[in-house]
Structures are given as C-alpha cells and as structure tokens.
Design a protein around this nucleic acid. Sequence first.
DNA 1: CGCCAGGTTGATTTCGCTCAAGCAATGTGG
DNA 2: CCACATTGCTTGAGCGAAATCAACCTGGCG
Lengths: 242, 242
Amino acid sequence: MERRKIMPGVNCFECLPREHNEWSVLSDEELNLLTQAKKCRKYHAGESIFAIGEPSHGVYCIVSGGAAVRKIDAAGNSILLHLVYPGGTLGYRGVLLDEERRSSAEALGPSKICFIDRHTVQTLLERNPTLGQQFLRRVVTDVDDAHDKLVRNATLSNRTKFVHLLLALMNRHGRTATDGSRVMELPLSRRDLASMIGARHETLSRIIGRLEEDGVARFSGRTVCVSHPTSLLHEIRPSLLD
Amino acid sequence: MERRKIMPGVNCFECLPREHNEWSVLSDEELNLLTQAKKCRKYHAGESIFAIGEPSHGVYCIVSGGAAVRKIDAAGNSILLHLVYPGGTLGYRGVLLDEERRSSAEALGPSKICFIDRHTVQTLLERNPTLGQQFLRRVVTDVDDAHDKLVRNATLSNRTKFVHLLLALMNRHGRTATDGSRVMELPLSRRDLASMIGARHETLSRIIGRLEEDGVARFSGRTVCVSHPTSLLHEIRPSLLD
DNA sequence: CGCCAGGTTGATTTCGCTCAAGCAATGTGG
DNA sequence: CCACATTGCTTGAGCGAAATCAACCTGGCG
C-alpha cells in the first residue's frame, strides 16, 4: 500500500520561502485557512508531481528542492520548459483557466512541495484581492521570461544558448571554490539540457567537448567547473561591435 | 504642429471588442470612469505606439486594426514577438511590474487604440477584484502561447514554423474565395515574417519559393493564395507515425 | 535621374541533424 | 555470480538545412 507522505507539522506561518512570494500578502486569518487546506508532501528525485492530460485540481508551491516543467511536442519529444525553485508556484495555468494540464512536472531532487486545491485558491483570491495582484505579477514575469527566451532562440547559436543556460544554472546550483572558480552539480541529464536549448543530445555532447577544448569549462559526469567565471560572460557578448 | 488625434465621441459602453475581454466585467459606474479616463486615438499603419526604454504610463486596448510587438536582441536585430488584435490589451507588463518598456509596439494597419493610464488601471483593479481575475486569465493565456511557441521553435524546421505562422495569419486576415481557396493580404514585410520564425529573410525567400514549387501556396507581393487549405494542415502533420 | 528600401537569387560555408557504433554504469533474472 | 539487457553518454561519418556574403532587380520618391 502507498503510504501518504503528508506532513502535518508544517504550517505556512513559518514557511520561509512564502515570505517572498505571492502568498506573503495573506492575513493571519487567511494564513490559517491556507495552513489547514494545503497538503505538504515530500517528493523523491524525479517523482511526478502532475502529468499531461490530468484535471487541474490545484496549484503547487515549492518549499524546498525544485521542480522541472515539461511539454511534449507534436512528434512526441519531451521538451524541458523551465525549472521552478523554492518560493515558486507551479500549475497555476490549469487552475486559472480551468483546463486539463498541458505540461507535466516532476521533482528536481528530494523536494518538499505543498498542494493547494483549486477551491482554496479561488476562495483566497476572492477574499484578498491583493493576492490576485501578486499572482498577476508572478505570471507577468513568467511571460516576460518566456519572451526573452523566444528572442534568444531566434538568433543565438546552440553554443551560446547553452552558455546562457549554464550561467542560469550556475546562479542557482553553483558554489564558489576557494580559488574563485565556480562548481556545480547539474540537476539534469544531457538529454534534458539539450531539449532546453532545442538541440539534439549528440549536438550538446559536441558543444560540451568544444567548451572543454576552449578551456571555458570542465565537465565530469554531472559536475561542471568553470575556473574563470568571466569566460562564460565573455562568451555571450554579441562580439561587441562598436 | 502635431495635432492630437483624440476621439472624444467613442465611449466604452458601446465598444464591441470590450464585451469579450477582461473589461467586460466592469460595472456601469466603473465603465463611466473608464470612458472618461481613456484616451482613444487613431494610428496610421506602422505608427509607433510605444518604444523600448520609455516609462510605462499605461496600457493600450485595441479597438480596431491591430498592433505588432517587437523586441531587440543583443546584436540589435529586431524580432517580431506577436500580433495583437481588437479586444487585445497591450503593454500591461511595464504597468503591472512598474518598469520601463522592454518591447516596442506599432500599429499593424490603420488602427483605433485606446490608452488607459496606470492610475486608472490601478484604481479599477482595486475597485473591482473580478477585473484582476480576468486580467490573470489573459496573462496566463499569453504565457501559454509563449510556451507553445517555445516548444515549436525547439523542434520544427523553418519551413514548418512558417506554415504554422501562415495558418495563424490566415485565420485573422484570410478570406475564402468562391472556389474554396483562401486569400489574404500579408500585414507584414518578409523581414518581419522571417524574424517571427527566427530565420534570415533570405531563408524565408527560399522557403516561399519552395512552397510555390510544391503547389502549397502562391505569393505575389503581399498577397498569398492557398488554393487547397488542407495542404497547409497536411504540412504540419508530424508525418503521422501512429 | 539617381538613390534607397525591400525583395529575390546565387555561391559558398558552417552548423546542426541523422544514423550508427561503441562504452561505461546499472540493473535483472537465472 | 555471471550473462545479458538497458540506459545515458560520447564519437564518427555523411548529409541537409540554413547562415553568410554578394549581386541584382524592382518600385517608389526626393
């Protein structure tokens, strides 16, 4: 039998990531409602959060860990759209439009993620208009990010797109070593990394090889080391044409 | 001297496109406020609505005609992001995030477009929470569209992406002739069409040539004729592999 | 008339995809 | 414990799509 991994102890008052996202505007009374309604769960790495075609029962809030959002293209290829980190909210599309899920999500690593059912979301939105404003801000920044990605995809080479991705991942997952170099453990397979920049995994393999040849970064399994972080920034300069 | 093309006669009660968008939920009193606050203007084809770097003073509502939204990539290339049609709202990003414009917009053809200043938007949002919900729905569908575009860009060939674009444009601008063929006047230059699919304009030229060779469509200046509309749909099938 | 913007066409090269093989790590059933 | 599949990654060879560089054509328009 599947044992429910509900964690009753956690409450939203003490939730640290919550202080910096859309739920920060709730009153104590509303926080009480949220605490009782939400269902917090631990996910293990790679575990599915929701799948394409499911009804959208609610939104998910990342407490710790992270999540990856996927889509499937017309030919059946899996495309990794973006990653969500603590404080981020997941799955609002289906809930707000009252439609089936059109993307899937899975835990990036061991993660704690709260589920908030559609009814509670609706109630809170009606009771506290400020929450709607905050949600609006989140979604607008999401559309903004997507547009920036579209622009990059339109003109950049696979190599440059990958360097952009590396920089973004390094920001989230990297540590600065004592000698100033940056190191991280990649949270994704090469296939997924490739899909994020719209390339085949073989192509990504070659790009990685070339980055190593050029001394930009060193890859060993899922460990990446950039000895001179500015080399990455130098890569994405549009060859400054002044 | 520049003559202001304000049109005082138009009021939001009679605005037809408004009945089907986020502003449809306003009360009579709120509609009065909107009618008095909004500034309606006629734009001629290609006229700038707002530009990158400007402060975001308000949102724009398309009454008739249309608008094109652009971004500039790091190398200075102009990328056409998407088109907005009557009933659509423009420029909400800068207003809701209180930031400078990061895209520009221009009239697609002769257009009537209303301006609603940030203060009025804010007032209406606070006074009528349902408006916020409606706005939320609009922005969520926008982010959804952007994600779909990202997925298409990740895997499809330039030719297929262009066929997708043609279909979308045909839906908006096409007429069905007596013999069942579909005809439209392209609202955009080849350069802009190319930028929408992330290709060079030379490449688009060749794609158009090949589409004509293959009998899919005929191009003459800005006029496009698709004699058998299903041929376009047949193009975008992922070679149906059961 | 010359000039210019927008578009087409050609020649060449580069990039990235496809197909294919090989390899290491991991798992599985006998 | 071994034989064998499986999965994720790398590498190679060949090819095709698209970018690049360039010439040239057309229709405005001063």
